[in-house]
Design a protein around this nucleic acid. Structure first.
Length: 775
DNA sequence: CACCTCTGGTGGGAG
DNA sequence: ACCAGAGGTG
């Protein structure tokens, strides 16, 4: 037997050596799934299968990179670099980058993230003269996304009776039209959103038999991780790709299906056995991760779900400690309790920071934990929330890079056309967009021929300068790599300089972020092709842009850094930690109020709880708070129903009520809370309004009224000089103290007799120069 | 045209 | 509590 098979149990080994034909591996939590997958790939290659012929779809890009490494390690060669491995989205993006022209898209198409997509939805909604308040971009986008994940195109959507009925009932009958307009606009912009990466991939394979044939024969062996979280689009694509070889191996756990909001359906697992004639099913039921106690409560909890594939998870690990159940008065107390516990375990048990994870249902919950950890000087890393690439300065910079690679990208163009301020304001942008729509060309094309669209002379010049600049950047693409282009852009555009000159704390941080972005581009440029999960050897800016949009926090942050990890339970899927805190176990929060209306929804929340529990190897804390701030208001909550599903024998409630310190603050908080609820509260509000009354309205001193002189005629302000005496229509007479500002937006500081010093924008204010008497 | 302030909306998870 | 977008003002 090969060495790499020796460390496997019997079931695992079977999963590895069953290489031919459809195979479904039901892998319980902590059952060594990743080990099986990597060993299986190594085994295939060891048997003589060419790495070029293996496609492996993982849940994160990081998981993909790790698997490559492990395979290399097992085989002791570098062949694994040739595997086609990554997330559905990044693998399909890579294929589409080679094939998109067949669908009429540029091969260097832009990938729109959710923000871009919602912005486009909003724009086309407005253009259809629909009310954005009613057709909320968020809601409409979700509806479109749902349709695409089910492979329902815009035309089909509009023609579908039931979908139309649904939209009618929601009083939003025009969603189909927005969908249609949205698709057309994305196409015009040369852009695909996340869902298009799946939808267009399917379209590609369906429309071009020769393309289908090519990839069917390329991917002779297909492996899919986390199969329970695939959606119908992904399912159909795999069905197409695997139809010839039928060597499709899926790995999943129906008990951990937590992505139905993304269109995932558990049906894919249940259906798999019916899709092929002879499907082999292997169950991995031995857990190597958690203590007996943790596994017991996980089993007890998941028992409450009705539909599932029967399996019994067991472990040979010791019983371990009881689960600590802790209730605190407020969310802040909860954060403090967790920080205190971590501090204590670090001192008493010599735990490292990285051995702790704090998991929660919603990203908003991170705040109280963050504050407590910071106060206790415990290093931590937050996953999710606003990612690096969503920061304004980074999005701005990237918008420049995007517009260089794909000038049709209207979202990017709108973002930077007047940043830094170059005198192309909203009015001009609207005019350009209107002209583009009328003539059915891109906004960029309007700008390149701006003289034809009747801009004001000043604006026209600004536009022409802008176009020239972008074109000069664009001309570098052929000969320069991503870093060289990006660096040049930073040097040539003023906004990086602006950031550099901003010495406020935020300004410094923003400038550092830009530096970090450049570093990451440099790293991309210099990483050998074999160590990437995405593009092979393509170091162009286009290649860089397409991969960053698909990066998640988990791809970017180092799990080995010695910090406490904070993340949602969704983000924790597939991870494990010696000590896990699960926070916010409250009705309304977890299970979330939005997901308790149907049995299916509730069962998914329960699976989420199951995932949370099974992340823990040794110690598990479940915490909840009596009251918690929501939208700045104190809300009360009961304990989560999930807590009741854990048999008392496994629970240690000795912490309940939180220790002495918590009692103290609880009383305080409780009484303040009581006061507020009884209506003695109001004090804060009335004080505020009292203060504002004193200051008078918005706190600005009232102006002394001035009636312009009878002969008031606005002068040519370009003749203005320091020291001149002037009359202002509203502020009266005064002297020019200083002249400043840019040529297209000059500003004068004027000391008025009755109103003090004011900055006056000369483009708009009406000023009359008072003639000097002795002239 | 650009900056500032004030107001109202925000229900969740993520590639 | 917080942030984005509307609206006023220079």
């Amino acid at each position: 037997m090969q060495d790499y098979l020796k460390g496997l149990n019997e079931r695992q080994r079977e999963a590895v050596i069953t290489t031919e034909g459809p195979l479904m591996i039901i892998a319980g939590a902590g059952s060594g799934k990743t080990k099986v997958l990597t060993t299986r790939i190594a085994h295939l290659m060891n048997k003589g299968v060419d790495a070029f012929n293996i496609l492996a779809l993982t849940f994160t890009n990081k998981a993909a990179a790790e698997m490559k490494e492990r395979v290399e390690h097992i085989l002791a060669n570098r062949e694994a670099r040739n595997l086609y491995i990554g997330t559905f989205h990044s693998v399909f993006a890579r294929i589409l980058r080679a094939e998109a022209h067949r669908l009429g898209y540029p091969n260097a198409f832009t990938i729109y993230d959710t923000d871009d997509a919602k912005s486009v939805v909003k724009a086309v909604t407005n253009e259809l003269n629909l009310d954005v308040q009613h057709y909320k971009p968020n809601a409409v986008y979700n509806r479109i996304s749902g349709a695409k994940n089910a492979l329902v195109g815009a035309k089909e959507y509009m023609a579908d009776y039931y979908l139309q009925q649904e939209d009618m009932r929601a009083n939003r009958p025009m969603i189909g039209h927005i969908y249609d307009a949205y698709q057309k606009r994305c196409f015009k912009n040369g852009a695909m959103d996340f869902d298009d990466l799946l939808f267009k991939m399917y379209e590609l394979l369906k429309t071009f038999p020769e393309v289908l044939h090519k990839y069917q024969h390329k991917f002779k062996y297909i492996l899919i991780d986390e199969y329970q979280d695939t959606n119908p689009a992904q399912y159909e694509i795999i069905k197409l790709l695997g139809a010839v070889s039928e060597n499709v191996c899926v790995v999943g756990d129906d008990a951990q299906s937590i992505y139905s909001f993304r269109g995932a359906t558990i049906q894919n697992i249940l259906q798999f056995q019916k899709d092929y004639d002879e499907v082999k099913v292997i169950k991995l039921e031995q857990n190597y991760r958690s203590t007996q106690t943790i596994l017991n409560i996980a089993n007890e909890v998941i028992k409450n779900n009705k539909g599932q594939i029967p399996k019994t998870l067991f472990t040979e690990n010791s019983a371990g400690e009881k689960i600590k159940l802790v209730r605190t008065m407020t969310d802040n107390d909860e954060g403090k309790f967790v920080a205190d516990q971590i501090q204590e375990m670090r001192l008493r048990n010599h735990f490292k920071n990285k051995e702790f994870a704090i998991l929660y249902r919603t990203n908003a919950q991170s705040r109280s934990f963050e504050e407590s950890l910071r106060r206790a000087n415990i290093p931590y890393t937050i996953y999710g929330g606003i990612s690096f690439y969503q920061r304004k300065e980074i999005k701005d910079y990237i918008a420049y890079l995007r517009i260089i690679v794909n000038p049709k990208d209207e979202e990017a163009l709108k973002r930077i056309i007047n940043y830094p301020v170059r005198g192309i304001g909203k009015t001009s942008v609207d005019r350009a967009i209107l002209a583009a729509n009328e003539r059915n060309i891109s906004m960029w094309e309007v700008l390149t021929d701006a003289a034809a669209s009747g801009f004001r002379a000043g604006t026209l010049q600004a536009i022409e300068e802008f176009v020239l600049m972008i074109k000069s950047f664009h001309s570098m693409l052929g000969s320069k790599n991503a870093y060289d282009v990006a660096f040049h852009v930073g040097k040539q555009t003023a906004f990086v300089k602006e950031l550099f000159n901003d010495k406020s704390t935020e300004g410094v941080q923003r400038y550092e972020n830009v530096q970090e972005l450049l570093n990451s581009i440099k790293e991309f440029t210099e990483t050998p092709a074999s160590e990437e999960s995405g593009e092979v050897g393509d170091k162009s800016l286009g290649a860089y842009l397409q991969q960053i949009t698909l990066l998640t926090d988990s791809d970017q942050k180092d799990p080995d850094a010695d910090t406490v990890k904070l993340m949602t339970i969704h983000a924790a899927k597939g991870l494990e930690f010696p000590v896990v805190f699960v926070g916010g176990l409250e009705e309304g929060l977890f299970p979330n109020a939005m997901s308790i209306n149907t049995r299916d929804e509730l069962e998914e929340e329960r699976r989420l709880f199951y995932v949370a529990i099974t992340r823990a190897k040794g110690r598990l804390y479940l915490t909840y708070a009596n009251t918690r701030y929501k939208f700045g208001q104190l809300q009360q909550a009961d304990a989560s129903r999930f807590i009741e599903e854990i048999p008392a024998e496994y629970l240690d409630k000795s912490f309940a009520g939180g220790g002495v310190k918590n009692q103290g603050s609880s009383k305080l908080m409780g009484s303040a809370f009581e006061r507020m609820n009884r209506g003695f509260g109001g004090t804060e509000k009335s004080e505020k309004s009292f203060v504002s009354t004193l200051i008078g309205g918005n706190g600005k001193p009232k102006e002394t009224a001035h009636t312009p002189s009878a002969n008031f005629v606005p002068s040519d302000v370009s003749k203005l000089e320091e020291g001149m005496r002037v009359e202002h229509q509203k502020f009266g007479f005064g002297n020019v103290v200083k002249l400043e500002g840019s040529s297209h937006n000059p500003v004068a500081t004027i000391k008025f007799d009755a109103n003090g010093e004011k900055k006056i924008m000369l483009n708009y204010a009406k000023l009359m120069i008072v003639p000097t008497t002795n002239e």
